[in-house]
């Protein structure tokens, strides 16, 4: 049982956890948690790829870019969630359909 295999399997478990949470949740902010969890696993895969191919620097460049993008996405999602909360009073997605006024 190689250490890389263990890393791959644990990363896949984390991605699965993130995806399930993303799909099943009804709360706006928990979508961000699910997305962030999956991105952590993906950063680990990218570093693993760099380590295996001897090209750590390129993997680091990818990881830094992914981190910046995901921070922007998380901030925008939080902003949207807060703005919806101010207008409608709660963060449940199920209440968003067919809102009038």
């Amino acid at each position: 049982m190689n250490v890389t295999t263990v890393m791959l399997v644990s990363g896949l478990i984390l991605i699965l956890a993130g995806c399930i949470e993303l799909i099943r949740t009804h709360h706006m902010l928990k979508i961000i948690i699910g997305l962030e969890l999956a991105i952590k696993a993906i950063s680990m895969f990218l570093t693993l790829g760099g380590w295996l191919n001897g090209n750590i620097a390129l993997a680091e460049a990818f990881v830094v870019t992914v981190i910046v993008l995901e921070v922007v996405v998380a901030t925008v999602l939080s902003g949207i969630a807060i703005s919806i909360y101010h207008k409608h009073g709660n963060m449940d997605i199920r209440n968003l359909r067919n809102l009038k006024g």
């Binding site: 952590k40 570093t47 680091e60 830094v64 981190i67």
Partner: peptide, 17 residues
């Protein structure tokens, strides 16, 4: 990440995420 050798990415991960 630090253990695997990616020092800069480790700094980014800890401070930003």
């Amino acid at each position: 990440m630090y253990v695997l050798g990616a020092h800069t990415a480790a700094i980014f991960e800890v401070s930003v995420c």
